[in-house]
C-alpha cells in the first residue's frame, strides 16, 4: 500500500480519511466487503486496534456498516463518503493557499499562477 500516514498526527483519523477516499474514488464499491481488521492492519502496516477504531468511526459516520461475524461492508449509500471526499478537497485547497501565502503569494497571484501553469 502506498499510503504513508503522517506520524506526527494521530494515525486513526488518517486511516479513516484514507478508507473514505478509497470508497469515494471507487476503489471499494457500494456494498463491497472491506478487508478484515487483520488484513487491513497488515496492508496498512498499522495496529489492528487502530483499524478496529477506524471501522467503528466510519460506521458511526454512516460510511460503512459492520455485519456480525461477517465483516465490515461499504454502505449502499456512498454519498456520505463522497461528501467526505468533497470536504477533503476543500481542506487540501485551503492548505495549499495557506502554504502559498507563506511563500509570499496571495490568492490572486496563486490563481494567475495556476492559469499559466495549465497553459
Amino acid at each position: 500500500m502506498s499510503w504513508k500516514p503522517d506520524k506526527d498526527k494521530p494515525i486513526c483519523p488518517q486511516l479513516c480519511e484514507y478508507i473514505c477516499l478509497s470508497i469515494a474514488t471507487g476503489v471499494y464499491g457500494a456494498g463491497d466487503k472491506l478487508p478484515s481488521v487483520r488484513e487491513m492492519a497488515v496492508t496498512a502496516g498499522v495496529n489492528p486496534n487502530t483499524v478496529k477504531r477506524a471501522y467503528e468511526i466510519l460506521e458511526f459516520r454512516g460510511i460503512v456498516t459492520s455485519v456480525r461475524n461477517q465483516g465490515t461492508f461499504v454502505s449502499e449509500n456512498t454519498l456520505i463518503a463522497k461528501e467526505s471526499l468533497e470536504n477533503m478537497r476543500r481542506q487540501k485547497t485551503a492548505e495549499y493557499f495557506t502554504d502559498m501565502k507563506a511563500l509570499g503569494m496571495d490568492a490572486e497571484a496563486v490563481k494567475k499562477y495556476i492559469e499559466e501553469w495549465n497553459a
Binding site: P5, K7, I11, R38, A41, V42, G45, V46, N47, P48
Partner: peptide
C-alpha cells in the same frame, strides 16, 4: 501483525522507534 490475537499482548522492546511506532 498477522499473528495478532485479541486475547494476547505483544511487548516490543526497541530503539528503532520510527519503524515500529505505527503498529503500537
Amino acid at each position: 501483525l498477522n499473528n495478532y490475537n485479541p486475547e494476547a499482548t505483544v511487548l516490543i522492546s526497541t530503539h528503532l522507534i520510527s519503524d515500529i511506532e505505527k503498529i503500537l
